[in-house]
């Protein structure tokens, strides 16, 4: 009797093990470009809360600069602009998504920096933003100097914290994981100012009239597309790079830029 029980137990364990192995994602053995072609679509990470680069609009559709750019790239790499699966990334998890292979590429307002370049690969810059400061219209903060000792809201994993700490070391940092949380914290008065890229601030201002952007720009933030650093993904990266080159040459980039920044950014 006991032997029968043991045998059934072993069988059950085997069954569980085999069903678990099914869950483990197949690692891409061959090069990524081939995998993408076989799959028939690019899996791209974009932000869902950074207007006007990647956001959900009123009719619940994903839109924005980065979204259009990836569609153009898909048109040139796979021949179909709808051959894209968008996945949400945030400032704090976009690099992890790339490294773990959850997404093929990331277009998420990501600044090209040298610490990041050690971990992932970038395309050429496709847009240049600047880090700016957003305050309530009646705030006493007028310039960068007024910031000392204030509570500054940032999004974790972005370049904002390092930059502001270098310029005004006495600020108190409140770090959140998403822009939604960060804007919410500013609205409810948890912090005095919010700092991030001006483009994202303009997107927020388009819906909230009680806030304004300060004239100072702390830094220049060149955005690049992010790729995983690996031999197997190089072919895909080259294909996207040449597509991006085309997009910039034939005026498509200027069109996308006009479409998304004209309404929001009045410089």
């Amino acid at each position: 009797m006991i032997i029968y029980k043991k045998i059934t137990l072993i069988l059950i364990i085997c069954l569980i093990m085999t069903s678990l192995t099914g869950c483990i994602k197949k690692m891409a053995d061959e090069n990524l470009l081939k995998t993408v072609r076989e799959r028939g679509k690019i899996i791209a990470g974009v932000k869902f809360d950074a207007k006007p680069f990647g956001f959900i609009d009123q009719d619940q559709k994903l839109k924005g600069f980065d979204v259009d750019l990836i569609r153009e790239i898909a048109k040139r790499v796979l021949g179909d602009e709808n051959a894209v699966e968008f996945q949400q990334v945030t400032s704090s998890n976009r690099i992890f998504s790339l490294i773990s292979g959850n997404v093929d590429m990331v277009a998420a307002t990501m600044t090209i920096t040298s610490p990041r370049q050690k971990v992932i690969d970038f395309s050429r810059p496709y847009y240049v933003a600047g880090q700016a400061i957003m305050v309530a219209k009646d705030s006493s903060v007028k310039t960068l100097k007024d910031l000392s000792g204030r509570r500054v809201i940032i999004v974790l994993g972005s370049t904002s914290e390092i930059n502001i700490k270098q310029m005004v070391p006495s600020v108190k940092i409140l770090g959140f994981r998403t822009y939604t949380d960060a804007f919410e914290a500013l609205k409810s008065g948890r912090g005095d100012v919010l700092t991030t890229d001006d483009t994202i601030i303009y997107g927020f201002l388009s819906e909230n009239s009680k806030y304004k952007i300060l004239k100072d720009r702390l830094t220049l933030e060149p955005y690049g597309l992010g790729f995983k650093k690996a031999e197997k993904t190089q072919s895909f990266q080259d294909a996207v790079d040449s597509a991006l080159e085309q997009i910039m040459q034939d005026g498509t980039m200027a069109k996308i830029q006009r479409k998304w920044t004209a309404d929001f950014i009045k410089k």
Partner: peptide, 22 residues
């Protein structure tokens, strides 16, 4: 850590996303 209290997990998370050493 979700409401910006700098506890242990906030620091771990920040370290992980800043140094990319998850």
């Amino acid at each position: 850590s979700f409401i910006a209290v700098t506890d242990l997990f906030y620091r771990i998370y920040k370290g992980a996303v800043d140094d990319f050493r998850f």
